[in-house]
Write a protein that binds this DNA or RNA. Structure first.
Length: 185
DNA sequence: CTTGGGATGGTCT
DNA sequence: GACCATCCCAAGG
């Protein structure tokens, strides 16, 4: 497997969000592998982005957004869900992360269905909390290094690049003029 | 197909 | 004490 190097993540968060499309997210649990192709992402930056968790200050929850790029930022939301992000930013910026909103399942579909207790393939991993549930990603993976072989990592993925659709980010009230949601079909 | 409300608890002000 | 980078189901058209 070829992992995306640390340098991949040490660029503008918006650039990384776009380029993560088509890459492969790999998760191993109990010796079994699940994987999927990233099909939707969102960029969240720092002081210039009021919608970002890092906008106000560094806290216990968001601290990894300020730390080494290429690590997992995972947060708990709505009382029952986890969302998975990758820390990424230009070295000149102090914080940033890319929310992974959707993947197209490849390996381990049966395990994902079991984890979700839902069996409809279309709704298995097409949302940030859905894919976390399918891949059994929780706060335990907070800060995991995604650039090397481990239980959670990102590899090169597809050779061919597809057309990227840019939109406003989902579920936020500020920064709507930034088209920082990216997807491929 | 779209819309609205409930579930449920950590995090930040 | 209000707010959520969400999801699911039921009801309506």
């Amino acid at each position: 497997m070829s992992f995306l190097p640390r340098s991949f993540y040490a660029r503008n968060t918006v650039t990384v969000a776009k380029e993560l499309l088509g890459k492969r997210l790999v998760r191993k649990v109990n010796g079994k592998t699940m994987s999927g192709i990233i099909t939707e992402t969102e960029a969240y930056r720092h002081k210039d982005d009021p919608a970002s968790h890092a906008f106000r200050s560094k806290t216990e929850r968001n601290k990894v957004m300020f730390e080494q790029v290429g690590r997992a930022y995972i947060y708990f939301t709505y009382g029952m869900y986890f969302c998975f992000n990758v820390v990424a930013r230009n070295p000149k910026s102090k914080a940033g992360a890319v929310l992974i909103r959707s993947i197209q399942p490849e390996l381990g579909v049966d395990i994902m269905k079991k984890n979700r207790r839902k069996y409809d393939l279309k709704n298995l991993t097409n949302g940030p909390a859905k894919l976390s549930q399918a891949l059994d990603i929780t706060k335990k993976q907070y800060g995991v290094d995604l650039t090397r072989d481990s239980n959670l990592c990102i590899t090169k993925g597809l050779e061919k690049t597809r057309k990227i659709i840019a939109s406003p980010r989902v579920g936020i009230k500020s920064g709507l003029d930034n088209l920082w949601n990216f997807k491929i079909t």
